[in-house]
Design a binder for these strands. Structure first.
Length: 432
DNA sequence: ATGGGTCAG
DNA sequence: CTTTCTGACCCAT
């Protein structure tokens, strides 16, 4: 007698992401923020990049400039905070570590999102999603939603559904939802809601009569490949339930590193740039060594504000380095090649350097004519060590090491403490 | 190869 | 007064 056919348990993808991550991370350490409208601002306190649900309800848009919000903040009871990347990075690591206990098959997709490979019956998957949500909330203190589906694209869609429909209570298992309801959802949403489709592609799809997600799901994959790309074809197949985007291994090594920042006040002289480029050169050096990488090419660039119609200048220069290196002295000197291109008196709003053609630091000693005198003496790691012990700005190479001078550094007037990464900023708990 | 275009978070 | 910043990838040239 045949046993009952085992229920097919194809692997599925769980997509987990933290609700308005930056604001939630702030709340985890400052309960007074609970229930209040909170926004976290971009670099230089420029605009709102994360809004708590209460802030969204006030009609505050993503990207809204802080100078427009500030006058009404008091009236609204709005709390604005500068980006505290140290805090967010640490909270993120805790969330990911916790999720890793639910599946060894974990892809950390961004600071606040992860994909996990999971298996089980629909009931088990729903249960698992609920456990993830509860565990992260209880152990790290931030709220997450979970979407579970046969493909990454559908898992992201399920997650979004869970976020926007309280009936799911934060967890949506795609295939547990009746087909008619799924179809209704896909018919009601524009293709722009799909992962990988933004304004440009939406316009092009619309021109072909493809408006809703359902339209796209029913499109011919081959036609889509011919008119768009293999990437868009994968999206179509994934919407149809065929996995095309695998879970990725942790990316080891990068193709490029970029250091770029807008200034809190515009820079107008080559002298100021000399200092900025020195700092970037040293930061690039530190990050390269941390990743065990050396660069062969450095590009330095600067730019005026797009809001400034009078001055338009976007100088850029590329320098082939004499050898693959992470040496701060060499990188800084190369970055300084931009200086002659800086037009005096023009108001520059940002500058940056990019190192490319990266390769792992070899353990083979260079031939003597190519030896690098600074690396030889470990100046890079010495600078890093002192920076770590005495703070940024306490030491630096040449013009990068001077405290004070023109104030081009990032503006962060409303920064919360680094609750979890600095002893003197730990929160105090009082047991009454 | 590489620079422009597009997207994500 | 602003539209983050950083990184990846496709595609046309």
């Amino acid at each position: 007698m045949a046993r009952p056919a085992p229920m097919r348990q194809l692997p599925q993808i769980a997509h987990v992401d933290v609700n308005c991550f930056y604001a939630s991370a702030e709340r985890a350490f400052n309960p007074a923020l609970e229930g209040r409208p909170v926004v976290v601002l971009s670099n230089n306190d420029g605009c709102a990049v994360t809004r708590s649900p209460e802030a969204k309800r006030l009609g505050i848009a993503l990207g809204e400039p802080w100078f427009k919000l500030a006058p009404r903040a008091r009236e609204w009871g709005l709390v604005a905070l500068s980006s505290n990347y140290e805090l967010y990075g640490d909270i993120s690591a805790r969330v990911m570590e916790l999720l890793g206990r639910f599946s060894a098959w974990l892809e950390v997709y961004s600071i606040d999102e992860a994909f996990l490979g999971v298996k089980g019956t629909p009931a088990e998957l729903l249960e698992l999603g609920g456990q993830m949500k509860t565990a992260v909330r209880r152990n790290v203190g931030v709220p997450v939603c979970v979407g579970i589906a046969p493909t990454k694209t559908l898992a992201k869609l399920a997650n979004k559904w869970a976020k926007n429909n309280p009936a799911f209570d934060g967890v949506c298992h795609w295939e547990s939802v009746p087909a008619a309801a799924r179809e209704r959802l896909m018919r009601s949403l524009s293709v722009i809601e799909i992962w990988g489709v933004a304004t440009r592609l939406t316009k092009r799809l619309n021109a072909l009569g493809i408006h809703s997600i359902l339209d796209l799901a029913r499109a011919d994959p081959v036609m889509i490949r011919d008119r768009f790309s293999v990437v868009m074809m994968r999206t179509v197949l994934e919407l149809q339930g065929t996995p095309c985007i695998p879970l990725e291994e942790e990316r080891i090594g990068r193709d490029q590193l970029i250091f770029s920042r807008s200034f809190s006040t515009p820079l107008t002289s080559a002298a100021g740039f000399r200092q900025v480029l020195s700092v970037y050169g040293q930061q690039a050096s530190a990050r390269l060594s941390r990743h065990g990488l050396q660069a062969k090419l450095l590009t330095a660039f600067a730019g005026t504000s797009h809001f400034n119609a009078r001055d338009v200048s976007f100088p850029t220069v590329s320098v082939v380095l004499p050898m693959p290196t992470a040496d701060p002295v060499i990188l800084t000197r190369a970055a300084h090649a931009l200086l002659p291109r800086i037009v005096d008196g023009v108001k520059y709003a940002k500058a940056g350097i990019m190192v490319t053609d990266l390769r792992p630091t070899g353990n083979q000693a260079p031939l003597s004519p190519f030896e690098n005198p600074h690396e030889e003496r470990h100046i890079g790691s010495l600078v890093e060590d002192i920076t770590r012990r005495y703070g940024r700005g306490s030491i630096g190479l040449g013009f990068g090491g001077i405290r004070g001078g023109p104030d081009w550094s990032m503006r962060r007037d409303m920064l919360s403490p680094r609750y979890t990464t600095h002893w003197d900023e730990l929160p105090l708990v009082k047991a009454a």
